[in-house]
């Protein structure tokens, strides 16, 4: 899902002043426990072709690798907005993130790795300033199920 952010420019600094969701429903979910969980933006997944596009949506190329010896069911993927980048083709709604790899490690744990973005004809969207702290790790952990 894409949101529209409104920024104010002052002394060469961009300050976010509003976020306008481009979708009717803006919902939040709790990932994890009520004591230590993470509040995440909810987005229902729809499987589409890699090369397709949809207005107001970003296509996320996801590779899921099951490293356990049993069959696993994936119901949710937690994506961290900080290492996640958006790439787009100018003048179109064609938008992608970089390659995402979900490695299932156990019955309730997985790691999400953020790979490289698409090359041909895509431009990288500038990050909002508040998401610019140093990205030490290009991965995030899912500890409370997937």
């Amino acid at each position: 899902m894409l949101d529209l952010a409104v920024y104010a420019l002052y002394n060469n600094n961009f300050n976010i002043i509003d976020i306008i969701p481009l979708h009717e429903k803006y919902k939040l979910v709790l990932y994890g426990t009520e004591q230590a969980g993470i509040i995440a933006r909810y987005c229902s997944l729809e499987l589409v072709e890699r090369e397709s596009y949809k207005e107001r949506y970003v296509i996320i190329p996801i590779k899921i690798r099951n490293e356990t010896r049993s069959i696993r069911e994936v119901n949710k993927i937690l994506l961290d907005a900080s290492p996640l980048k958006i790439f787009y083709k100018r003048g179109t709604w064609i938008a992608r993130t970089q390659e995402i790899e979900v490695n299932i490690l156990g019955s309730s744990t997985a790691i999400v790795l953020y790979g490289k973005g698409p090359q041909d004809g895509f431009e990288q969207l500038e990050d909002p300033p508040e998401l610019r702290p140093p990205r030490l790790l290009n991965r995030s952990d899912m500890m409370w199920g997937y």
Partner: peptide
């Protein structure tokens, strides 16, 4: 359900 801050889960 329509309220953005009411969480889906829990």
């Amino acid at each position: 359900d329509d309220h953005p801050f009411v969480m889906l889960e829990p």
